[in-house]
């Protein structure tokens, strides 16, 4: 393990994300109990599990939207801790897509996308706009660039949120239930965009309930329950031959139809 606490320059040879016996409590409730997990560069990991199992908390600890209480988290060798410089260095390299999109409602689609490249990367406006338009084209909504977010459908908003995160050219993308707030007919357009992104070799961690999607996309599937990783492995194996009884119950419920 190369990460010493003081380092703030990313190390591309280190695991993209390493959790080492990470615990997190909300009051008396343990959201994570000694979770260890290493995500290799370029790996696509899907995290699933019943609600309240700690899967969202797990990925929110990666970019310090939640502070873990015990253990260590290293992102490209940089330790995630209270040091604001290191936290910002990590956030620059880690993109996040939220369940509720969280677009900035007072800014146009284009302005949503160029804000961070200009303010964080110091990019000139023209360059940032060009970059943003290329990513908006990639998520297939370049024609909406001048609109305000609330004029868009949920699926379109989530695709803008993906483009906005990509404009920072992150090496790691975190998806926190990206399709859970969408109407059924819009889920596919968002999953297609994420699927295309997966083919570019970007490191991805995705919390989702879309089992078919997980099966197609993931290199590894992680099943969590009650703040612990119960079982992890290639999705085909987990679906075909789940070992843990809790995973069997979960799959039986989710795949009953």
């Amino acid at each position: 393990m190369s990460g010493r606490g003081g380092e703030s320059a990313p190390d591309p040879t280190a695991p993209a994300i390493a959790f080492e016996r990470v615990s997190k409590w909300f009051g008396a409730h343990a959201a994570l109990r000694g979770v260890s997990l290493a995500v290799a560069p370029g790996e696509r990991v899907v995290v699933c599990g019943p609600s309240g199992s700690g899967k969202s908390t797990l990925i929110r600890c990666v970019n310090r939207l939640e502070a873990h209480d015990e253990g260590r988290i290293l992102v490209e060798g940089i330790e995630v801790d209270d040091d604001p410089r290191r936290v910002r260095a990590i956030r620059r390299e880690v993109g996040m897509v939220f369940q509720s999109f969280n677009l900035f409602p007072h800014l146009s689609v284009l302005e949503n996308c160029i804000l961070a490249p200009m303010r964080v990367r110091g990019m000139a406006r023209a360059e940032a706009e060009e970059l943003a338009m290329s990513y908006l084209a990639r998520v297939r909504i370049p024609e909406q660039a001048e609109k305000l977010p609330h004029a868009l459908s949920g699926g379109q908003q989530q695709r803008v949120a993906i483009a906005r995160a990509l404009c920072m050219r992150p090496r790691i993308m975190l998806f926190d239930e990206p399709t859970s707030a969408l109407d059924p007919e819009m889920i596919k357009e968002v999953l297609d965009v994420i699927g295309e992104l997966a083919e570019t070799g970007m490191t991805m961690v995705c919390v989702t309930h879309e089992m078919g999607f997980a099966r197609r996309l993931a290199d590894r599937m992680v099943f969590m329950d009650a703040g612990e990783i119960v079982e992890a492995g290639p999705p085909e194996r987990l679906f075909r031959a789940p070992e843990a009884p809790r995973l069997r119950d979960f799959l039986a419920q989710i795949l009953r139809d």
Binding site: L65, R91, R92, G95, S100, F104, A116, V120, A161, A165
Partner: peptide, 11 residues
């Protein structure tokens, strides 16, 4: 979520 989205982008 507005704070989280902006901070998450590195602002």
């Amino acid at each position: 979520g507005q704070w989280e989205a902006a901070l998450g982008l590195g602002l």
